[in-house]
């Protein structure tokens, strides 16, 4: 830990968040988040690999009939937009616009919640139509485990973003503390990126592979 120097004439940003005093000139916490995201790649990679292994075991619940592409495209779009609002929130606080940050963080959390609501709705639909976590087939179990884990990650993200808003109202967040928002943003974008992969691998590919053959070309 280095002591921070409070000299008014320096051009050097010596706050701990800027990476001052570190070997790579990067904040420790930012580096930590990236290392964590690398490991989360393996975590979701394993879940996706498992899904790919088991998705052909779908007797009685053909993915083609269950996976609704238009519906999921909308929810994928919602999550993508939440990444945009997230990055705008960060840009606001980096400029010192704390009110703007609050608005855009709430927007991000809202979009995330819409996504989660959509997932919940989709899952209950599936449940009623006979696709369940247990007792049906491995495609169902793998599907719910993968998307459920992703949903949990999104939930944690929404809680994190809302707690940043609460902190902003109670203690305030200065532009020099924007790293806190940036790191939450990295996590949020990662969760979005994982959905990009899941959307393609599970919904698009899975659906295509199990589509019934077309008649007449």
């Amino acid at each position: 830990m280095t002591a921070s120097h409070a000299t008014a004439t320096t051009h050097v940003d010596t706050s701990p968040d800027s990476g001052y005093g570190t070997t790579l000139r990067i904040s420790h916490r930012k580096l930590l988040m990236w290392a964590f995201l690398a490991s989360d790649c393996m975590f979701f990679g394993t879940l996706i690999a498992n899904f790919i292994t088991y998705f052909t075991r779908n007797e009685g619940t053909s993915p083609f009939t269950f996976l609704d592409i238009p519906y999921t495209s909308v929810s994928a779009f919602v999550l993508l937009m939440s990444s945009l609002t997230m990055v705008i929130a960060l840009a606001c606080i980096q400029r010192g616009d704390e009110i703007g940050m609050r608005i855009w963080l709430v927007a991000t959390a809202l979009l995330g919640s819409v996504f989660l609501g959509g997932q919940y709705f989709e899952f209950t639909e599936f449940y009623h139509k006979g696709m369940q976590l247990t007792g049906v087939n491995l495609f169902s179990s793998a599907f719910f485990t993968l998307t459920g884990t992703h949903g949990l990650h999104v939930t944690v993200g929404v809680i994190w973003l809302l707690s940043l808003v609460v902190v902003s109202f109670t203690k305030g967040i200065k532009s020099s503390e924007s790293l806190n928002v940036e790191i939450a943003g990295l996590y949020w974008h990662f969760v979005d990126v994982v959905w990009i992969i899941i959307f393609a691998a599970v919904y698009l590919v899975g659906n295509t592979m199990t589509a019934p053959p077309l008649r007449g070309g």
């Binding site: 490991s39 989360d40 393996m42 975590f43 394993t46 879940l47 976590l133």
Partner: peptide
């Protein structure tokens, strides 16, 4: 470790909830 984390989740789900991974 994330890989064993997933494997242990599957095993726990199998044992506690009734999945068949």
């Amino acid at each position: 470790f994330p890989v064993i984390t997933v494997a242990l989740i599957f095993l726990a789900l199998d044992r506690m909830v009734g999945t068949s991974f």
